[in-house]
């Protein structure tokens, strides 16, 4: 998605990746209105890292695939400008270096207090912005420049109508449907897009 040049729409992006043990990583990006209605959707074909990539990228592999590869591609494809992009996977925070959008990692508040981060975190984690909004905790990376108060004000109309975890479930359902529909007849030959 291009950097908005005019006033941003009251729209919000939701970004997630679904991991399938057989086919790899499927990404999905959903833009919602503040009432929670779908405005735009994009999903990716599966990305399957090969063995060499798994070895060479090591612990950074998920961050690379989810953020740099899938997340960046999806955001670049989208057309509608958004006030913020919310992700439910911490690896997506690596996108903050690559994209201009306001990016936040969303977790339910009680779980965030108990569960440690699942992926690599920037070394300057303590400097990362953080916001508690209702029952949700929103975190940025150290490279994020958003201000908690400003983001809270922008998200306020959204959380009146939308449970912040719910759109990710929609994306997963849509990815499943898109992949089901796009399954060509069995006599053709296919391959995976490789990372």
């Amino acid at each position: 998605m291009d950097v908005p040049t005019s006033k941003s729409l009251p729209a919000f992006g939701f970004l997630t990746v679904v991991e399938d043990p057989q086919h790899g990583f499927f990404g999905g990006y959903l833009v919602l209105s503040e009432l929670g209605r779908p405005l735009e959707f994009h999903c990716s074909t599966p990305v399957q890292p090969n063995q060499a990539q798994k070895i060479l990228y090591g612990a950074t592999l998920r961050s690379y695939i989810l953020g740099e590869l899938i997340g960046q591609t999806l955001l670049a494809t989208a057309q509608l400008p958004v006030l913020a992009v919310l992700a439910d996977q911490v690896e997506m925070l690596s996108l903050a270096l690559l994209r201009p959008e306001t990016l936040a990692y969303v977790t339910p508040l009680p779980a965030a207090a108990e569960v440690p981060c699942q992926g690599p975190r920037p070394a300057e984690e303590k400097a990362a912005p953080e916001l508690v909004l209702g029952t949700w905790r929103l975190q940025g990376s150290s490279s994020c420049s958003w201000q908690p108060d400003a983001l809270a004000a922008e998200l306020a109309p959204l959380i009146r109508h939308v449970d912040l975890a719910e759109p990710f479930a929609r994306i997963r359902g849509a990815i499943q449907e898109a992949q089901r529909i796009s399954t060509p007849p069995a006599d053709e030959t296919y391959g995976s897009a490789a990372a």
């Binding site: 997963r172 499943q176 089901r180 897009a193």
Partner: peptide
């Protein structure tokens, strides 16, 4: 690299909260 998507096996994607 291929330009056509790989067909996933039916029902293999986790539905999560869908």
């Amino acid at each position: 690299c291929h330009n056509t998507p790989a067909p996933p096996a039916a029902g293999t994607l986790p539905t999560g909260q869908a």
